[in-house]
Design a protein around this nucleic acid. Structure first.
Length: 883
RNA sequence: GGCCGGUUAGCUCAGCCAGGCUAGAGCGCCUGUCUUACAAACAGGAUGUCGAAGGUUCGAUUCCUUCACCGGCCACCA
């Protein structure tokens, strides 16, 4: 690595800036880096010297907060290190502008609604209107493509804001590799992905009970479900038995589903209910006769040990429905309201249809909460004179976990609908194995993936009943009766993507045949947004666009992401890589922790405890904020603590000032020969080795900590103090002076480079004063990452351990000065210290520098073997009268 | 219910995988010093039954077991 040296620049100190002005420096270098195209992927190196990052595309509806800054900067530190190691870094940025949040925002902002059946209007002009006008006018109805245009228009503005912030914080992304999940490439690849999976037989459509969100009126996938504790109540309801006076009491939290009751079950060994099995129960109010059967799935301890099965109260109801071939009594509509039904008709058996219909009429059209209240009121009424009401006792309040769509506010329901699925349950072993082929940082995050994968219950539901998203590239033939034949879908050709089947006819058909007998009908569903975002590695590598690029860059090297989306983004990305190419999508997954607010709650926009980054960047500077993010290891949740920003800012100032001092010393090419200089270089070489190893493990936090501590304690506080006067030519010959300056400069150059991934601005600034020209590397961020090879020209010092002795000596004298209430820098006319023979011996070769470090003009060392190693005793310290 | 991570100074965190010098850093606190890189600094000081209890060991913050508390993941949720 040591090549022919270029002339050393001597810097005129008066030309150096007096202060580090973060904002100016940041703006200047951001501009300069862009001009130099410093972060561009060059595609000029073999794969093993290329480093590909599968950057998470942030959702663009809203503001970025500290959590984003945190994780994205951690990735940038890794990217910058890789770049300095000589890798051709592929570091893209995507925008996730596809999905519900954007859809809602665009609807409100432009006051429009989407009708996907409308044809695209290329001349459509939508202007922003005032809130007042929004109230007065109905929303404008636009086609799906026009709607997408509006999404692009609005998200582009957000993206510019995001981009400015990313630049400000110093993300070294290659802006030529920008994509957004709604752009043509992404829609094309998502549709291609579907076609590929369909052809391989991994995709199927089926009408079956599916997790349904009544608020957004769409199916969702298992991965998007979350449990929330909500208050509920256990209702004890008395059922009758057909043809007898017997009764029994079931317990349920969902009395509103009573009209949808299809069976009753208890544990086969439960003695209380032995006599009931095989008989028919009669539900109260609606007098529905239903089978009573035994099932081991029932717990004897819960509730009353006997329960009603409905269409559908929970997932177990679905199991019983399937296994027992129970009837389907769907009372709940897709909008979450009770649909009209007529008891006494086919499938709606009742022993007293008239009574049932009279009661149900009151319920029809009500939402679930209202229906529950109404039913409970009905249950309180005694069925006849002298009879007990079906409600055995007042409902017992309880708090229980209920499933919600993670973006929704109303409980999920299970409703039979027609949906598209990707078959996963038969691939669990392969998926687990793929997860193990990826290196997770930290490793325990792999268990999150394993847990989720092992416990998969349902195939991946990929269809959503929404407008804004990537449409299925699918049509259905319509038969002579005008009914679409869903069993024979027409799949688009991969050569004509992206396609919108709502506005484009399938091959061989004419637009006039849409929804006509013997014509065609379009699939109206769109993909789950994860169906697209699970392709980010393929999007980056432009799969199917140019084979060369994908073949070279896929699988990628690094997927950075946070841990709460392991079961979605990470999981689905692994699914896609496995099913499409039998590959893993990335070699490493770097899982960032969360930012916690002072109450140790996750900082997030929805919780309203998020801090906006701009004021902090203004106050502390980008480097200081980056210092904070780089102080946290991967996978570790971190408290938001402004003290750490302060520390970072202090370090930035220290680097700036140290750089100023070192580069102000008169310099020329000179070998490093002095013993102390060689000792320090030996230590620095050790640091370089360890920091390099940490970075290779993506442990930038350990690297930073170690660099910082060595820089501050050993370099500025000890070494610099000792060589300061020699570097100025005091009490030394030219060889000593030259060695000091050469050593200081080499150390500075190495420290700057070790700090550069974390503190790109201050290091670039100091680098530019002299090293840029000297080394020919105009930017530190393209300079060589320091390695031990840089020290190859240096002789081995005779006494490498004597640095610690020197530091111990400095500490003793400084302590003496502090005790005497004298300034540390106050000179001593005479200093007499005692030390044991071995300790004194270690100082011999560096004694001039050591005495200079404590500003002793003359000195004497007395031998006292009663003292321990590295122990000093001050015999006499004569302070100078001048100062 | 199963699992993962955490519990170290007032605060924020290292150290623990491969056990051993009086257990560390920064912030904060106290004392002193404007010293020609730096007062956005420097020098010095005080502060801990390393969550609890057992065990292994000559020796445990570190390894093992159990427990407690905090956070999370998964499952159950009549």
């Amino acid at each position: 690595m040591v090549t022919e040296k270029k002339p050393v620049l001597t810097i005129d100190p008066s030309t150096l800036p007096s202060h580090f002005e973060a904002k100016n420096v940041e703006e200047r270098w951001t501009r300069q880096w862009a001009e130099w195209q410093l972060h561009d992927y060059a595609d000029d190196k073999p794969r093993e010297e290329t480093f590909v990052i599968d950057t998470p595309p942030p959702t663009v509806s809203g503001e970025l907060h500290m959590g984003h800054i945190f994780s994205y900067t951690q990735t940038d530190v890794i990217a910058r290190h890789q770049r300095m190691r000589g890798r051709d870094v592929f570091y893209p940025m995507g925008w996730d502008d596809n999905g519900l949040p954007t859809e809602r925002r665009v609807q409100n902002y432009f006051h429009v609604r989407c009708d996907p059946t409308l044809p695209y209007d290329p001349g459509l002009s939508i202007e922003t209107i005032s809130d007042k006008e929004k109230k007065e006018r109905p929303p404008r109805v636009v086609s799906r493509d026009n709607f997408i245009e509006l999404c692009l228009r609005l998200t582009r503005e957000d993206e510019e804001t995001f981009k400015a912030l990313w630049n400000r914080i110093g993300l070294s992304v290659d802006w030529k590799q920008e994509y957004s999940t709604i752009d043509n490439l992404c829609r094309r690849l998502a549709q291609f992905s579907f076609i590929d999976l369909y052809r391989k037989g991994h995709v199927y459509q089926v009408e079956s009970p599916t997790i349904w969100d009544v608020e957004f009126q769409t199916a969702i996938a298992q991965a998007e479900v979350e449990d929330r504790p909500v208050p509920g109540a256990l209702h004890h309801i008395r059922f009758g038995v057909e043809g007898s006076d017997e009764t029994f009491t079931i317990a349920t939290t969902r009395p509103e589903l009573l009209p949808a009751c299809v069976a009753v079950t208890a544990h086969p060994d439960d003695e209380r209910y032995q006599g009931l099995f095989g008989k028919r129960a009669v539900s109260p109010l609606f007098h529905i006769p239903v089978l009573i059967f035994p099932s081991k799935l029932v717990s004897r301890e819960k509730g009353t040990g006997i329960l009603m099965i409905c269409t559908f109260g929970d997932a177990t109801d679905v199991i019983w429905w399937r296994e027992q071939g129970l009837p389907l009594r769907q009372i709940l509509g897709l909008d979450g309201r009770l649909m009209p039904v007529t008891f006494g008709t086919d499938g709606w058996e009742s022993l007293n249809p008239e009574a049932a219909n009279n009661l149900y009429r009151e319920l029809s059209g009500k939402n679930l909460n209202a229906a529950r209240k109404a039913i409970v009121a009905m249950l309180r009424v005694p069925p006849g004179e002298g009879q007990e009401p079906p409600l055995v006792e007042e409902p017992k309040p309880l708090e229980h976990a209920v499933k919600f769509f993670e973006k929704g506010s109303r409980p999920l329901e299970i409703i039979p609908t027609k949906q598209w699925f990707v078959r996963l349950l038969d691939k669990i072993d392969s998926l687990l194995e793929a997860g193990d082929r990826i290196t997770w940082h930290p490793d325990f995050m792999r268990l999150r993936y394993r847990d989720w994968t092992k416990n998969l219950q349902i195939d991946w539901c990929i269809s959503r009943q929404r407008f804004f998203g990537v449409p299925f590239p699918v049509w259905f033939p319509v038969n002579a009766e005008g009914e679409p034949d869903r069993t024979n879908p027409i799949i688009a050709s991969p050569d004509h993507l992206p396609v919108d089947p709502m506005t484009t006819p399938p091959p061989g058909f004419d637009e006039s045949q849409r929804n006509q007998p013997n014509g065609f009908a379009a699939e109206t569903d769109v993909f789950d947004t994860w169906f697209t975002s699970s392709l980010t590695p393929q999007i980056c590598t432009q799969w199917q666009l140019g084979a060369g690029r994908h073949q070279k860059l896929f699988p990628t090297d690094l997927r950075p992401q946070s841990h709460e989306i392991i079961r979605t983004w990470a999981f689905y990305t692994i699914v896609k890589a496995l099913l499409h190419e039998d590959a893993i999508p990335w070699k490493h997954a770097a899982i960032s922790g969360w930012i916690l607010d002072p109450d140790r709650k996750k900082m997030s926009k929805t919780k309203d405890n998020a801090t906006t980054p701009m004021p902090l960047l203004e106050k502390y500077g980008a480097d200081a904020v980056r210092y904070w993010t780089a102080s946290a290891r991967l996978g570790v949740d971190t408290a938001f603590d402004q003290n750490v920003f302060k520390v970072g800012k202090r370090l930035v100032t220290k680097i700036f000032n140290a750089g100023k001092f070192v580069l102000s010393q008169t310099a020329e090419q000179h070998p490093i020969t002095n013993e102390l200089d060689l000792i320090f270089m030996r230590m620095l070489r050790e640091l370089v080795r360890r920091v390099g190893e940490s970075y290779d493990r993506f442990d930038y936090a350990a690297a930073l900590k170690e660099t910082e501590s060595f820089f501050w304690n050993s370099f500025t506080d000890a070494y610099m103090e000792m060589v300061k006067s020699r570097a100025r030519g005091k009490d030394t010959d030219e060889a000593g002076r030259g060695s000091a300056v050469a050593s200081l400069r080499r150390a500075l150059s190495i420290f700057l480079r070790l700090f550069a991934p974390v503190l790109p601005y201050v290091t670039e600034d100091v680098w530019s004063w002299a090293f840029a020209q000297e080394t020919g590397n105009k930017s530190i961020h393209r300079a060589d990452w320091p390695t031990e090879a840089e020290f190859a020209d240096l002789a081995e010092p005779p006494n490498p351990a004597s640095f610690d002795v020197a530091v111990a000596f400095l500490n003793t004298i400084n302590k003496g000065k502090a005790t005497a209430k004298m300034a540390t820098g106050h000179p001593l006319d005479l200093l007499v210290v005692a030390a044991n023979n071995a300790t004194a011996d270690k100082l011999k070769g560096i004694i001039t520098d050591v005495m200079s470090g404590v500003r002793a003009r003359s000195y004497r060392i007395e031998e006292n073997d009663g003292l321990g190693d590295e122990e000093f005793e001050i015999i006499e310290a004569r302070f100078a009268q001048d100062s």
